[in-house]
Simulated scan of single mutants.
Amino acid sequence: MSKYLVEFVALATAHFLALISPGPDFFLVVGTSVREGASRAAGLCAGIAAANGAYILLALTGFAFIKEPPLLFTAIRTAGALYLLYLGLMLLKPSQRPVDSPLPDDERPRGTSRRSQFAAGFLSAILNPKNAVFYLSLFTVIVSRDTPQAIQACYGLWMVLAVFFWDLLIARLAGSEKVRARLDRHTHWIEKCSGGALLLLGAVLLLR
């Protein structure tokens, strides 16, 4: 088996195991999908993938400054914690409408535009310093120094696409009209649980 294929399999496996572990992005996607529908959550997925791509790019170019100096890492972690608290509070707010009757585009507030959803997803992922440390560690531990940059870029592209399509799948499952109609009675609690999870993650990150 090719050395690069072994590297790719190891990298993809480690990345996927981390991807399927519920974190802030997962709860944000689920909560938004249930409330706004899968099409609205697509912007979130793109924003999350873009932020992951930014950290992958930093890892590929050898930047380890996210961990040095500690003050920068602490600042990013604090900002991320506060943003998670904000997102959690937003999901805890009442939806104000039945889950199976989404608002038409021209009646939606600006805050639910795809641009703002992209920004929310991007901020959620970029303000999580664990992403930077994870990708830096992943490339440092698994990828050989003599692996060509072009191949490493392919690894990175694969991971960005994996993040996007995995989150999109979660959004489709949680936000489809059939699922939302069936979950009508439970939507309130799904939103609250997602919001509560984000609040808890933010509080833990803030108090560490």
Results as ranks from 00 to 15, higher is better:
residue 85 L to Q: 06
residue 99 V to G: 09
residue 90 M to S: 14
residue 79 A to D: 05
residue 201 L to V: 01
residue 178 K to N: 14
residue 151 I to N: 02
residue 180 R to Y: 09
residue 7 E to H: 04
residue 85 L to A: 11
residue 165 F to W: 04
residue 111 G to P: 02
residue 66 I to M: 14
residue 68 E to N: 05
residue 46 A to P: 00
residue 196 G to M: 07
residue 72 L to V: 08
residue 140 T to D: 15
residue 41 A to N: 02
residue 174 A to Q: 00
residue 96 Q to I: 02
residue 159 M to H: 10
residue 91 L to G: 03
residue 133 V to W: 09
residue 207 L to K: 11
residue 66 I to H: 07
residue 172 R to G: 05
residue 120 A to W: 01
residue 31 G to W: 03
residue 148 P to S: 15
residue 170 I to M: 10
residue 89 L to V: 11
residue 10 A to Y: 09
residue 23 G to I: 04
residue 123 L to N: 06
residue 91 L to K: 01
residue 201 L to D: 04
residue 143 V to L: 12
residue 139 F to D: 03
residue 109 P to M: 02
residue 70 P to L: 01
residue 61 T to D: 09
residue 203 A to Y: 08
residue 28 L to M: 11
residue 52 N to P: 01
residue 153 A to D: 06
residue 84 L to H: 05
residue 149 Q to E: 08
residue 87 L to A: 01
residue 182 R to K: 11
residue 123 L to G: 08
residue 6 V to I: 13
residue 159 M to G: 03
residue 133 V to G: 07
residue 39 S to E: 11
residue 163 V to D: 14
residue 61 T to V: 07
residue 135 Y to D: 03
residue 6 V to P: 01
residue 23 G to L: 06
residue 187 T to C: 15
residue 183 L to N: 11
residue 97 R to G: 10
residue 5 L to M: 12
residue 44 L to H: 02
residue 72 L to R: 02
residue 15 H to I: 06
residue 200 L to P: 04
residue 5 L to A: 10
residue 92 L to R: 12
residue 32 T to A: 15
residue 176 S to D: 07
residue 155 Y to W: 11
residue 72 L to W: 05
residue 194 S to N: 06
residue 79 A to T: 05
residue 113 S to H: 07
residue 193 C to K: 02
residue 208 R to S: 15
residue 95 S to T: 01
residue 145 R to C: 08
residue 103 L to E: 06
residue 141 V to G: 09
residue 48 I to Q: 06
residue 13 T to R: 03
residue 134 F to D: 09
residue 65 F to H: 02
